[in-house]
């Protein structure tokens, strides 16, 4: 019973923090975009426009939910946006947000589900996001959403393979699939990013993560000049904003994976931040460090979006299948040899 209550509380806190960060990522996106284009950005609602996400959310909820008449399968049409948002929220439960919080005389682990196959669970649940886009494209029953849905499913299937294969070398070094072991290992040794033989893995992972979350330069599913708005053309109101939330939540989760796998998760390489927390304040500081690192990656996502133009579709597929997949396999062999010769463990 106690386990159920604590887990429920963890889930509630996690979702609260996650959705707040997601809402403010949208604000950050608009602000950064404005700065890069020499504009002001949202600045009317609250100081620096900080209440803008609240106003946007309220507006989205009050808008009329238009159901176009040509939609025949209403159940699948509604399932689309749900499947686009929920997987990203579920995935966040397998990621360690911090070490532990000593609270009410208990040591509370800062992870909803400490699984021994956490990485597989993350990839498994995040692969569900494809369904959202595919179903939205199909159930919309109109041309451009359908093309967007087909494109996107092909893209996400391709890059899922790269994404999963690119992190294999990291786990060869750790000898575990648990994300908590991952952070523990990096606190004892050094961060993965400081080991040169893991650099290819990191590069392929970060590029595949951009493709997997449909962000620029790989945001082909919603290429405006070709597809109107892609798979979400026929959606309005909260259903539309669910796609939006789903995209930003997926960005958050991918950033969290990068932080956990390569940048030491909640840790910093000096005391008292390089071992599990003993006091509440250090425990909270770990969570803050984790969120700060994620924020850096979210900023990178936004920075790249407003810097680099979109690639062509055939270039995207060629990059995935002809370059990245062979490269990841070579990388696995290469890191295997390095670890065998120099004993990276």
């Amino acid at each position: 019973m106690e386990f159920v209550v604590i887990t429920m509380a963890k889930i509630a806190v996690m979702l609260g923090v996650l959705l707040t960060v997601v809402a403010y990522t949208v604000w950050l996106e608009r602000k950064v975009c404005a700065w890069m284009q020499d504009r002001v950005g949202p600045n009317r609602v609250g100081p620096f426009g900080l209440l803008q996400p609240l106003a946007d959310g309220l507006k989205m909820m009050l808008k009329e939910d238009v159901l176009p008449r040509h939609i025949t399968d209403k159940a699948l049409y509604t399932l689309g946006p749900l499947m686009a948002m929920v997987p990203a929220l579920v995935t966040a439960g397998a990621i360690p947000w911090g070490s532990q919080l000593p609270l009410f005389g208990r040591q509370i682990q800062c992870v909803v589900a400490n699984l021994n196959a956490a990485v597989l669970v993350v990839f498994a649940t995040s692969s569900f996001a494809v369904y959202g886009i595919v179903l939205a494209g199909w159930a919309s029953n109109s041309k451009y959403p359908f093309l967007g849905g087909v494109r996107s499913s092909a893209q996400m299937i391709s890059y899922e393979v790269c994404l999963a294969l690119s992190v294999v070398p990291v786990f060869m070094q750790i000898g575990s699939l648990s994300l908590c072991h991952m952070v523990e290992y990096q606190t004892h040794h050094t961060w993965m990013i400081f080991m040169p033989w893991q650099w290819p893995s990191f590069l392929i992972f970060i590029i595949s993560a951009f493709a997997e979350t449909n962000r620029t330069p790989f945001d082909l599913p919603e290429a405006e000049q070709e597809l109107v708005a892609g798979y979400n053309t026929e959606y309005s109101s909260m259903k539309f904003s669910m796609f939006f939330l789903g995209e930003y939540a997926a960005m958050f989760v991918m950033s969290a994976m990068m932080v956990t796998l390569f940048f030491g998760g909640w840790s910093l390489p000096f005391a008292p931040f390089n071992r599990p927390a003993t006091t509440l304040w250090i425990g909270l500081a770990h969570v803050a460090i984790f969120l700060a690192k994620i924020l850096v990656f979210l900023f990178l996502y936004i920075w790249i979006r407003w810097t680099i133009p979109r690639v062509r579709y055939d270039q995207l597929m060629a990059l995935g299948w002809k370059i990245f997949i062979p490269l990841t396999i070579v990388n696995i062999v290469f890191v295997g040899i390095v670890l065998a010769l120099w004993g990276g463990r």
């Binding site: 692969s127 569900f128 494809v130 369904y131 199909w138 087909v150 499913s153 299937i157 899922e160």
Partner: peptide, 11 residues
Amino acid sequence: YAGAVMVLFLF
């Protein structure tokens, strides 16, 4: 099954 095979089926 759910993440890869069925997506291809649906495709």
